[in-house]
Design a protein around this nucleic acid. Structure first.
Lengths: 134, 134
DNA sequence: TCTCTTCTTTTGAATTATTCTAAACTGTTG
DNA sequence: CAACAGTTTAGAATAATTCAAAAGAAGAGA
């Protein structure tokens, strides 16, 4: 069966491999790296004939994110993007189109990050290269 | 008059120095660099005895941003922050508290930003250092 | 100054993105 | 296969922001 891989993956993450989660995982991880919004994934699922509620798409995206199967990318106050690439990497963001493009992790070097205030620890350093039609 | 400075500044930006805009500019630029959300500035205005509608606060923040008197910081999908520091600089973001701290522009060096796709130009490179209680 | 025109503000409704709630349903375990 | 815990669902609720129409104020000229 084609979905067996996702099944195992979900179990490993402590998530029951329900019909919805397996289907969404299938859509998300079948092809290479991708960036989705909840609405977009919901529409895609519908088009693929998978019946899933929008609330479940939101739940699932967040659960996958907690399980480190996805990462969340913040580039727009107003819309949450999820990325199937969970490795260390950065992004181009085309503001006009709301589109994201991965920049491999070793490409960009960030130097000189100051130490955070006392009692705080750096969780992640995000770099967003905002671009637009020239 | 204390508000004369803001008055001139607004005119220079092509904005009529209305009571509301002058008052908001006063709140924003009187003290050093600050980060505000629309709701927060609206509350602050109310506390200072300035009657301004929330819609006007939103309008004003966007107009000031277009006029380069403010910059917008994207660190949270769900909330827009505005920064009185419009120079080149970056931020710490304390996720738990939704608080921003400026990192001076020369502190962090970003090297290796790849050239954007054909026909696109880099508008800005944002670095967000996400931190949390250790 | 009066007035006219244009730009602004306001209130409240509308929109968008997301979360919550309670009930119905499904996966797992014994 | 029974029973419980975990999930899904529809729709209501919330949060942040924008929109629209009408009322109000600023600037220019008579």
């Amino acid at each position: 069966m084609k979905t067996h891989g996702d099944d195992v993956r979900l179990r490993a993450a402590g998530l029951r491999p329900t019909r919805q989660r397996v289907a969404l995982a299938g859509l998300l991880f079948r092809h290479g790296d991708r960036h989705v919004t909840a609405e977009a994934l919901h529409a895609e699922a519908a088009k693929a004939g998978v019946r899933v509620s929008l609330a479940t798409v939101y739940n699932t995206l967040h659960q996958f994110t907690e399980a480190r199967m996805l990462s969340e990318v913040v580039v727009d106050s107003g819309r949450a993007y999820f990325d199937t690439n969970i490795g260390n990497h950065q992004h181009f963001y085309i503001e006009d189109q709301g589109e994201l493009i991965d920049i491999p992790g070793e490409t960009i070097a960030v130097a000189g990050v100051p130490s955070p205030p006392k009692g705080m620890a750096v969780e992640r350093v995000d770099v967003v290269v905002r671009i637009k039609r020239a």
